[in-house]
Structure formats: structure tokens, C-alpha cells
Write a protein that binds this DNA or RNA. Structure first.
Lengths: 195, 195, 195, 195
DNA sequence: GATGAATGAGAGTTCATTCAT
DNA sequence: GATGAATGAACTCTCATTCAT
């Protein structure tokens, strides 16, 4: 469980990474952002790595729960993928820093332990997405001429780049509206052509 | 024009970012890698930012030339996209660090000037890719039920994620062979169904 | 008078100095060792220096009482020195940290007030030891060809080094048994040769 | 080999330990003492531990060479011990900080590696001293009723305490003159009584 | 072209201590 | 009595950069 202060710290860290990159994530900056002195941070986190681990935990909790839920519910594959898209986009709208960090694995390259954790989560989520698509293929919802593994890359790749484009666009377009169009296009691509 | 030493420095910088992330890119590390002392670096580059700019220039030169060439030649859109894929993958095989850095815009978030440059290149390449796809649609090579903009995101997103997956995979699969399969799947998705 | 907690703190401090040296003596470490938080320590001691003073007080009380008692009793000088040796060794066996700290005046070099106190005790004890030896010389028990001052240095120096050797030995020999042999040798040296 | 600056640093470190104890040995203090800023120190020593190791090396070089020389020369045991005493005292007069640090093994308790090194040197020197005394006993110069091991403790213990007494004395007596008297007494104790 | 020596700024972290509860 | 939260000062060490040689 996380204390209020810990949540504050993680949030501040996320925002700093988002705005200034990993190099801007210093204990001093975090402390300033939440209005305390540097040593105060160490009452709540043993060291900087623990803060980064906490960020990844947050990521893990959120996405894993989400993917698991999706896997289990009764909706079809297209609905699930649509939902996946929407959720990511909503999350991004609410806390852009969070998603921005999620899609930038390189940021954590510095520490072995962080790399391991991030890869673990990515692999797990990927496996679930593949399973969802596979099921969709069996149920004749998703086209079968392309392997589920490849389709999973197309889906996640599209989602990631779409989100990143928004992030980097100088004039922020309407993420939600555009997102819906994007997912419609994507689904058109991967669903079984009934024409 | 770049001197030999400058090329060495840029190469070392790329490898450092690739292996240790942005935080591992220090003048000291660069100097060590090419076997000189730190001040020697400053004979060849005014400061660290110039080195990063040089990396982006390298990126810009390589990709822009490539995209321009593609645009102009007489091949069809699918051939062009296939080529795009192959080229990126070849580049990645030759110098993984280079491509790895390219797809990680966040790494340069620290400096306004770097952000501007990277965005500029990305936008330009994107515009060309969209043009290629548009032409393909006009020539009835590429499916027309999805906008060229969206298809461009699908193509680039897939390429990026595919390459990143290779990069992060603990056991490196055969990038070239798998890349060919991936692009085949991708083309299957976006070309006009002649079935 | 010392409260229970104060005794606990002093004991913990002694053990810390013994095991990790002066640099390991931090309020945090003391608190951890007795299972409380750092501020709790300040309920019992005004500050860190007071804890160190307490250690020296403990030292002072123990040794001064002992030396005084020795001086007054009716035993001969050799018996007294033998007793001195035994007592130190017994004390060392019981609480090694205590004696280990005692023989390391440098540890307290940081604070004027601590230095003064430690020197005071040492001087007093030394004076008594000299008196004991002097008496022994008058009573023809101790050899007279060497001044009492010098003999005192030999006795205390031998005791200190002997104990330190035990402390630093990787495989701890039997301190008591070896101590008895050592004092026998020492007495052989300083007593009047009746051969 | 040591550069001039390294010698300066080691010297400054020694003096700091001597005057303020281990707690006073900070990079800042060293830097101040030799009139540079803190980072400058790191051009000459990788870190603080290396500085302390350098101190121990200095100790090792000086004492080991000395002990070895003594062992080999043709003088008798008493002359050797006398020389040992004189040398230590001369060294102490020249650079009190050096000897003061030498006799305070606890100061280095913090780091395993330092402890190992200091013990190694002490053991070696002790072995040589015992050998010197043993020879002296064979040659009927040193009394044989006490083991060489015990006599070695008496000799070194006396030397150490004598030197420490000088160090802690508020009014510094004449170390050289008093040292000669002390060693005379000591030799009287351990040499074969020819009376 | 390159080096050795240095520096100001700032990194992460620890310390003794305080204070409200 | 004890705690959680905080702080100012100080610590070791690294960074990009400069300059005389």
C-alpha cells in the first residue's frame, strides 16, 4: 500500500519525466514539486530507484488488471480491442505523463532491475493481447490470413505511435475523437472482411 | 562535413545511448570509448548538445535521403513500403544503436533545440510516407477504405514496435527473416483485397 | 542515575563502535539496534555527545572504583597487578565492546569535552598504578632498577596490546588462559629477581 | 608511484586524522588543506577509500622495509630493539600524524579492505620482531625465561603506549630524550641479567 | 590535436536534530 | 515515551566545461 505522500511523489516523478525527460527526474525536482526539502523524500522512499519501481508498479497494476479483465469478459475481440484503445486514450487524457512514460522503455535502461520489471509487464500484456486475437480468429471475428502474433504487433504498434503522435504534436488534436476514428480504421484492417 | 574523429565520437555516443540509455551518455564515457581524455572531445565538438545534434543530423541525412528516393522512383507503393521496412531492418542489423536511438524521441526531451529537430524530421518523413500511400491508393494498389494518414500510422507503428521488440527480446530472433514475414503480413493488411 | 533505556542506548552505542567503528555510531543505528525510532533517543539523551559522555562515565566509574579499591587493599603489588590484568580480561570477555572502546582514545578526538574527560580518567588511573608500583618497590616486591613510571608504562602497554591482539585476531584464542600466562610473564619481568 | 599531488593529499589526510580524528577526514577538509576544490581530489584519487589505502601503503612500505632491514643486519637483538624504538620515535617527531594513525587500527574499522590491509602489516611486523627476539635468546642476549611471543608484546606494547602518552600529554615532554630512557628501562627488563 | 589539472554546479544520500501529535 | 514528518548542513561523488601547456 502507498501512503498519500508516496502517491504524491510518484505523481510528481511522472510529471517530471513527462515534461523534462529522465534527466529532469531529480530528487531535488521532485521535492520542489511537492513543496518539501530533498531529505524529506527519503522518509517515503529508500532511494530513487524505489520511486522508479513504484512507477512501474503503478503501470503494472493498471495495465495487468485491465488486460486480465478484458481477457475474461464476454465481449468479442473487436470490442475488446476497441476498449483497449479507448482505455489507453482515456488514461492518456487524464494523466498524459503516465502513458508517456509507459511507452518509453529506454528511459529505464540505466538499471537492470527496472529493465527486468518493464519487460516482464510488456511480455505479459502482449501474451494476453495475442490470446484475445487468437480467440477472435477462432470465432471468425478477426481475419485468419495473418498470425495473431503479427496482428498483435500491428494493433499495439498503431496504438503506441498514435498516442506518441498526439504527445509530440505541437497543436494537440482532439485525442478522443481522433482515437475513435483511428481504432475504427484499425479494426477495419484486422477484422474478417464480410464484403 | 565530419572529420574522422567526429564520426568516432558520434558512433561512440550512439552506442552508449543504446547500451546505457541517455544517462550513460557522458563526455567521460565517450572519451573512454574512443580512448582519449575528456577535453579532447571539445576539440571536435563545441559541447554535448552539438554531439546530440550530430546524431540527429545523421538520422536526418539517412532517412530523408531514403524517403525522398523512395518517393521519386517508379516502384509501386507496396514495393516502396517493403523497401522501407527492409532498409530499416538492415540499418538496425548493421548498427542497432542507431535505430534504437531514432525511435526514442523522449531521450532528447531535455533540450528544446533537439526536440525541434527531431520533430521536424519525423514530420517530413511522415509526409512522404503519406504521399506514397496516397499514390498507392490512387493507383488502386492500396486499399482506399482507410485514410492514408491512418495507414501511415499503422505502417510506421508496426515497423517501430517490431524493431523495438527485437531490441528488447532477451534471445534475439532472426531480424531479417522475421522482418520479411512481418512486412508480408502488413502488406496483406493494407493492400487492396483482390480476392 | 541512568534509566533502563539509557543503559540500553549506551550498550547499543558501545556495540556499534566496537563493530563498525566511530563512523558506524549514528543515532539511526542506535535506534535500530534497540528497536525504536530516532527521535525516541532524544527523550533519553539530549544529544549524541551526551551518549558518548555517558560511555566515558561508565568507563570512569568502573575503572576508577577498581583502581581505588586496589590501591587501598592490603595485597602486595604483584597480586594487585595480577588482579588488574584479570579484571580487564574478565571485563573484556563479558563485554568486549566496552574494553575495545576504552583503549581507543582517538575515537573521541572529535570533541574537546570528550578528550578532556578521557584524559582525566587515564591520568588518574595511571597515577594510581604508579603508586601501587612504587609501594611494591619500597616493599622490595618490585624491582627497583627501573622507575615506577616506566614500569607502569610497561604494564599498561602490555595489557593494552595483549587485549588488542585478541580483539584483532581472526581466530579468537582463549583470552583468560592466555591472559594468565601473559601476566605471569609480565610479573616475572618486573618483580625483584630472587634468583 | 605517487605524484606530488597524491603525496600532498595523503599528507593532508594524515594531518586531518591526527588532529580531528577519522570524522574530520572529509574530502572537503582535504581539499581545503591543500587549497583546491573538492572535485580536484578525484583527479588524483578514485575515491576516499583509495586515499586511506594509500596511507596504509605508506605505513606498510616504511615499516616493512625497516623491519626487514633490522632482521638482516648483524647487530644484536638489544641493538635492534633500541633501533626500532629510536626509529619510531624519530618518525613520530618528524610526522606525528603518521605514527598517531598507525597505532589506531580502529580508525579503519569501517571498511573490510582497510582492516585486512592493516592486519596484514601488523602480523608481518610482529612475526619479524618475534624472530629478532628469538635469535637474541639463542645468542643469550635476551632472557630465556619468557617466551619470545610474550616479550614481543611487552616491547611493542610499551612502545605504543609510550608514544601515545606523548601524543596525549598536554605539555609535550622531550620525546627523544625520554624515549632513550624508556628503551633503556625496557632493555634492562628483557635482557639476560648478568648480575 | 591532446593532456593534466582544475572548477562550479549539482547529483543522490545521510546526519543530527526538531516538532507536532 | 514514542512516532511520523520534516529540515539544514554536510557528505561523497559526477558532470560539463575550461585553460594552460
Amino acid at each position: 500500500m502507498q501512503t498519500e505522500r508516496q502517491k504524491e511523489i510518484v505523481l510528481a516523478a511522472l510529471e517530471l519525466i513527462n515534461s523534462k525527460g529522465i534527466q529532469g527526474l531529480t530528487i531535488k525536482n521532485i521535492a520542489q514539486k511537492i513543496g518539501v526539502t530533498e531529505p524529506a523524500i527519503y522518509r517515503h522512499y529508500e532511494n530513487k530507484i524505489q520511486i522508479l519501481l513504484s512507477i512501474l508498479d503503478l503501470f503494472k497494476d493498471n495495465t495487468e488488471r485491465f488486460f486480465q479483465d478484458e481477457l475474461r469478459n464476454k465481449k468479442g475481440a473487436t470490442a475488446k480491442i476497441q476498449h483497449l484503445f479507448n482505455c489507453h486514450i482515456t488514461a492518456f487524457t487524464k494523466s498524459p505523463s503516465f502513458v508517456s512514460v509507459i511507452f518509453s522503455e529506454e528511459l529505464f535502461k540505466n538499471e537492470e532491475i527496472l529493465m527486468l520489471k518493464i519487460n516482464e509487464v510488456i511480455d505479459k500484456n502482449n501474451a494476453i493481447l495475442i490470446e484475445i486475437i487468437s480467440k477472435g480468429q477462432i470465432e471468425e471475428e478477426i481475419r485468419r490470413d495473418i498470425s495473431a502474433t503479427h496482428l498483435a504487433i500491428v494493433v499495439m504498434g498503431t496504438l503506441r505511435l498514435f498516442v506518441k503522435k498526439w504527445q509530440f504534436a505541437s497543436t494537440h488534436f482532439d485525442l478522443k475523437a481522433e482515437g475513435e476514428k483511428m481504432v475504427a480504421s484499425l479494426l477495419l484492417l484486422i477484422t474478417k472482411n464480410n464484403n
